[in-house]
């Protein structure tokens, strides 16, 4: 089949293994008589360990693309290999398993369960993994909360947390299942400069551990912390550039005075 050949050539040509490989991805939304062409043929390979920022104007199709990468939505046409699995041939249950084991998704609007503690929110992906015992579930969740610096907030409800803290809970939830890739749709969109830097710091450290990360952002500033920037326009990729020397969020955080960040905005 077409995409199997494609996979073979890909591996032959580039020796390193792409964790995400999409070819000619098309997504149309039908609304009554009008058809919205959200994605008009996207080709993109993302190597293992990469850190990619997807940029572009509002309505250019970034979220649509991310949702398809995250197996939350299905494209109208095209090919998508995730970790050598042909995603579009999978059943709903297999997709659910894939989301559960290989993907961590961070939403712009957090999407935490309300009236549910931070810890229970982080446990959520593990609840759907039969191989994990209650003990492991708790240990892994506490560890994930620690890694985003929120262990002291384990028993807080989302409405008792700031936006930045909620986003960090969401990140902890996305990494608790030790995914191969973390996908984050505007993870800093609702956050101020300092909190945004903290979130980028977390991503950079996860990336250092080998996790592939893809984020969507409007801000060139945020994109400069990643290794590769891909720009969308009208459902197409118009530019992809490597960042030779990504900025280091940890260093910038340490230089930043603690109390003046509000004025800097």
């Amino acid at each position: 089949m077409d995409h199997q050949n494609h996979q073979v050539t890909e591996e032959d040509v580039e020796m390193s293994k792409p964790i995400i490989s999409v070819k000619n991805l098309v997504k149309n939304y039908v609304m009554g008589d009008v058809e919205v062409h959200a994605l008009r043929g996207i080709d993109l390979d993302i190597q293992q360990g990469d850190f990619v920022a997807i940029m572009g104007k509002s309505g250019s199709g970034k979220s649509t693309f991310m949702n398809i990468l995250g197996c939350l939505d299905v494209p109208t046409r095209g090919h998508y290999l995730l970790d050598n699995v042909d995603v579009l041939t999978l059943t709903k249950d297999q997709l659910a398993n894939l989301r559960n084991r290989k993907i961590g998704f961070v939403f712009q609007s957090f999407n935490l369960l309300s009236r549910t503690t931070a810890l229970e929110n982080v446990e959520l992906p593990l609840m759907y993994n039969k191989k994990i015992s209650s003990k492991e579930m708790q240990d892994l969740s506490i560890k994930a909360l620690e890694s985003v610096g929120l262990s002291s907030r384990s028993y807080h409800f989302p409405n008792q947390l700031s936006g930045g803290e909620q986003q960090r809970v969401a990140i902890a939830r996305s990494l608790v299942n030790q995914p191969v890739v973390i996908l984050a749709d505007e993870p800093t969109g609702n956050l101020d400069t300092r909190t945004s830097l903290e979130v980028m710091d977390i991503f950079q450290r996860l990336n250092e551990q080998g996790i592939t990360i893809v984020i969507v952002t409007h801000e060139a500033d945020i994109a400069s912390f990643t290794k590769r920037n891909v720009s969308f326009r009208d459902g197409k990729i118009i530019r992809a550039i490597e960042i030779d020397h990504p900025r280091n969020a940890r260093e910038e955080l340490m230089q930043m005075p603690v109390n003046v960040d509000e004025e800097e905005l």
């Binding site: 709903k92 249950d93 659910a96 999407n111 369960l113 759907y128």
Partner: peptide, 16 residues
């Protein structure tokens, strides 16, 4: 429905 969306996004299957 939102709750179901969240659960499915982290890997819940329909019958879970």
């Amino acid at each position: 429905t939102r709750e179901i969306g969240i659960r499915m996004s982290v890997g819940a299957r329909g019958h879970d």
